[in-house]
Computed example of a mutant assay.
Amino acid sequence: MISIFIIFAIFILYIINNLTNSLCIVKEIPEERQPKVFRTINILITILLFSSYIEILYT
């Protein structure tokens, strides 16, 4: 179960990073702000994935 969820999480993070890159390009976010945008979105998605795993684990 955990291996399937880890593969799913990596796939989701990859897709979200591609979408974040597209967002930065479309909104013309400056290069110096882009790492902060990526970091914030990755942290929030990781928290979401972790809480989803805990919910699946205990239900």
Rank of each mutant, 00 (worst) to 15 (best):
M1V: 04
M1K: 08
I2C: 06
I4C: 04
F5A: 09
F5I: 11
I6P: 05
I6R: 07
I6Y: 03
I6M: 11
I7S: 13
I7L: 10
F8K: 13
F8Q: 10
F8C: 10
A9Q: 08
I10M: 10
I10F: 14
I10E: 07
F11L: 15
F11A: 15
F11N: 05
F11S: 14
F11P: 00
I12K: 03
L13W: 06
L13S: 09
L13R: 06
Y14P: 00
I15H: 01
I15E: 01
I15Q: 08
I16C: 00
N17Q: 13
N18K: 13
N18Q: 11
L19R: 09
L19I: 08
T20P: 02
T20Y: 04
N21E: 09
N21K: 14
L23H: 05
C24I: 04
C24V: 04
C24G: 02
C24P: 01
I25S: 06
V26S: 06
K27R: 11
K27I: 02
E28K: 15
E28Y: 05
I29P: 03
I29C: 03
P30V: 01
E31G: 05
E31C: 00
E31R: 11
E31P: 00
E31A: 08
E32K: 14
R33Q: 13
R33N: 14
R33C: 11
R33Y: 08
Q34T: 11
Q34V: 13
P35G: 04
P35L: 02
K36E: 13
K36D: 12
V37M: 04
F38W: 03
F38T: 00
R39K: 14
R39W: 09
R39E: 14
R39T: 13
T40H: 04
T40E: 10
T40W: 03
T40A: 08
T40Q: 06
I41G: 02
I41K: 01
I41W: 07
I41C: 05
I41A: 01
I41D: 01
I41L: 08
N42L: 04
N42W: 01
L44P: 00
I45Q: 04
I45M: 12
I45Y: 06
I45C: 11
T46V: 07
T46K: 07
I47S: 09
I47A: 12
I47L: 15
I47R: 04
L48G: 13
L48E: 06
F50D: 05
F50S: 15
F50R: 02
F50V: 15
F50N: 06
S51Q: 08
S52K: 00
S52P: 00
S52E: 06
S52T: 14
Y53D: 01
Y53V: 04
I54N: 07
E55F: 14
I56K: 08
I56Q: 11
L57V: 00
L57A: 12
Y58Q: 05
Y58I: 12
T59R: 14
T59Q: 08
T59V: 02
T59N: 11
